[in-house]
Design a protein around this nucleic acid. Sequence first.
RNA 1: GCGCGGGUGGUGAAAUGGCAGACACACUAGCCUUAGGAGCUAGCGCCGCAAGGCAUGGAGGUUCAAGUCCUCUCCCGCGCACCA
Length: 951
Amino acid sequence: MKKYDHIKIEKKWQREWAKKKVYRTEDNSKKQKFYILDMFPYPSGEGLHVGHPKGYIATDIVSRMKRMQGLNVLHPMGFDAFGLPAENYAIETKTNPAIAVAKNVVRYKKQLEIIGFDYDWSREINTTDPKYYKWTQWIFLKLFERGLAYESFEPINWCPSCKTGLANEDVEDGKCERCGTSVEKRPMRQWVLKITDYADRLLRDLNVLDWPESIKESQRNWIGRSEGTEINFTIKDKTEKLKVFTTRPDTLFGVTYMVVAPEHKFVTELLEHRENLKNHDEVAKYVTHACMETEIERTNAKKEKTGVKLEGIFAINPANKEKVPVFVADYVLADYGTGAVMAVPAHDERDFVFAKKYKLPIKQVIEPVYTQTTEPGKIIPNFPFEHRNAIIAIVKHWKDDKYMALKWKKVAWGTFITGGVEGNQTPEEAAKMEIKEETGFLHPKLISNFGRIHSKFYHVPKKVNRFAHSHTLYFKLENDAREKVTETENEIHEVKWLTIDELKTFLTEDSHQHALRILADVSDAYVDEGILVNSGAFSGKDSQEVKKVITKSVGGKWVVKYKLKDWVFSRQRYWGEPFPIFHNSDKIIPVSEKDLPVVLPKVKSYEPTGTGESPLASIPKWVNVKVGVGKNAKMLKRETNTMPQWAGSSWYYLRYMDPKNSKALVDPLKEKYWNEVDFYVGGAEHATRHLIYARFWHKFLYDIGIVSTLEPFKKLQSVGLIMGEDGKKMSKRFGNIVNPDLIVKTYGADTLRLYEMFMGPFDQAIAWNTNGMIGSRRFLERVWKLRQKVHEKGTISKETEILLHKTIKKVTEDISSIHHNTAVSSMMILSNVFEKENTISKTHFEIFLKLLAPFAPHITEELWCDLGNKKSIHISGWPLADESKIAERSVTIVVQVNGKVRASFTAVRGTSKEGLEKTALDLPDVKKWIGDKKPKRIIVISDKLVSIVVA
RNA sequence: GCGCGGGUGGUGAAAUGGCAGACACACUAGCCUUAGGAGCUAGCGCCGCAAGGCAUGGAGGUUCAAGUCCUCUCCCGCGCACCA
């Protein structure tokens, strides 16, 4: 037999498939459709490394199986090529980026082709093709028509190195995602898309998506919805008001000062006239400094908080008419909420830190409520609470720095002294009585009142959910006078004298720990929900329940805010889609649809100007256009910004449905047929950019009737990176790049494909290991040799046939759930068993080849053809597992004695439990372990195991 | 700090609550070959001569039975982070 010559075989079949158009996708098919998509690549000058095809191989396998199962599969490929990498390359080499992109695309296609993908290349798209970006511009026009694209002059993130504005999503840790330079805030004219209008739908519809939870969670975080209240504070002796946003209107009575962001209009306007502020210069200096800081410096949470008081300015708390000072401080963000906050230091950590530093009053308005969530005393849900007035007494020793604590004897509790308040006792009387009863001490003296601490728990002896409201009182013993304690009290608990440090580990109840923090003077802001105090008519109410009531009482408005910001959509660079927009002095005039596309002109220099203008501005012939005829003709100026890299990829999946249509973005009938992407595979790094932008545009296109689905990608799967052999990210910088061309040449595309799938779980990052790949090659060699055992009238054993059917089932299920690694290993097991057979029947071997075909399309096609088949294996039918064969007649029964496996035996499937038990007890190995002891219990699981328990 | 994933041999990893380590790499021994990154046979978690015991980051728990379920805890990766 011939040697397995992968080079010859792979070349031969790739040509043959292309010639016979084996993978051409039909639009007018009666078959059920399946749309499977890879995130298309950005063709850089460096070419693909072995990590790039991992996702493509996985989708290729799924699409091949689906095709064999008789579905009409759309599995397209294209190129995303606008943006900075191509432009920077152009600047370096002084070539037109269009030329470099064309060259890179050719290279990428060649690299992809030798791996043997089943793409229908007749549907290839390229985002830089005017025939494509015509429709990107068209979508922009529609957004503009609906008021979702607008010009703004707000300060935005600016990368001084890339010399362009950036979207919020392009900034990571205050640095430009592309080049790592710290971004600055810079006010400039820019185009912005109103993605915030879709925030609520983008958030809500995540729930129906079959996506990895981590990516959905990232998007939820990014959108950052929160509900709260907007409240106006009037300014003393002035007409203007200060509007704040808060999620905690229930703490309104605890406001002791206000804070506004340095960029806030309120501050800017005050600074316009010296006489407005007694400390004008100080404030001006602070504001200037704060605005100059970079995003990193500003947003570092660990940075010490700074601020300056606006001397002479006071705000009036609408709830209690109290007069509070106003500060300007950079811990308040200008672009979230209203850029101003009401500070409640007692119940907000940041305000607390600031108040401590500037010695501002801290006023408690929420009493803590602790809920027991662990046993013993875990509350029973949906069960009413019995309220009880109570005390917690902290008693200091008469001379030592020690405090009295109770160690409970019947439960694992450590507490201060506790008790109920009976009848018309005052809390102080009740506490003194408890001290005497429980400990015998006679002369406690009240030092201070720590207020109430509430706790919810299940009272085990009384069988009720209890809600205890404990007045927490601090006493000091005047002397050691003590009387005897009754026996009953002594049986319940033991008195201990402990230091503060010892109490930290001794006290088991959260409410007592809270009291201890007050005692030790280390309490910080209590930020959880609780019961209102010092809040006028609202005192005693539940904080959760009064939020809307308080809002209403001060004329506030219940609102929803998002962290998500509108999408800064213009770049001051050359290599992007031009905007279909004209300017006429102040007026904005959209280019009419029939004049699309606005083609990107050639320029002499691609260098960014850094002035906030793109290089396009330097081509007067392109910028100045005469529009209209006769006396209606006007000279207009074109918009010279370009769109960001993310524009083209925000809708490309739709174009594959109808890539050549010059009349419409996508033909409505084709859109209805192909519908949504059934399965989308790509890197998790796109979680908060491409995957949010595309969802946004898709929802917009739904609203204007272009698409018929609410979401673009039904099921999403993320690919785990392939790292270099050194475990570091594969990159030119580390010199650890493995070139797939070389692997394909030396080992073959089929080996590469098989290995990348066999490496490990698909979504997990993993290091490349060329050594480990040998195993996949050997497997294919063995499959090749198996051909010699195949005869028309060959036979395989019953067991092997059973295994074959189990393998069909396993491979089918594993491909569907992207467990390609275990699919490969199950085929390896089958081939190992085949090797032990003398002959293999043709039909059985063909089934095996079909299972392997999606993974190793070339070698299987060659063997399939060699067996005399005329049509391609890839359009043959997918095998079905015969369930009746999978159910083996004999099963192995495991016997456990006291939970340890001691023996096993073979039984006929379906043997009665009694029969299994009897056989098991008769086994010598079992008898040995039971000895003369009597089995206490015997558990029998049919067709599986017998578990014997002996004393 | 909050949220989402993970911790299993020398390595990559398998395992509907039912024989932990399938499958593969590496390694060891032997065979076959004019030596090669080839093939075949056997071995390969740890301790132990063995019988057997111990092992899925750590500590408890539920169960006849736990890598798998529950509680606490440590470590690693990712996302968000002064968002009021």
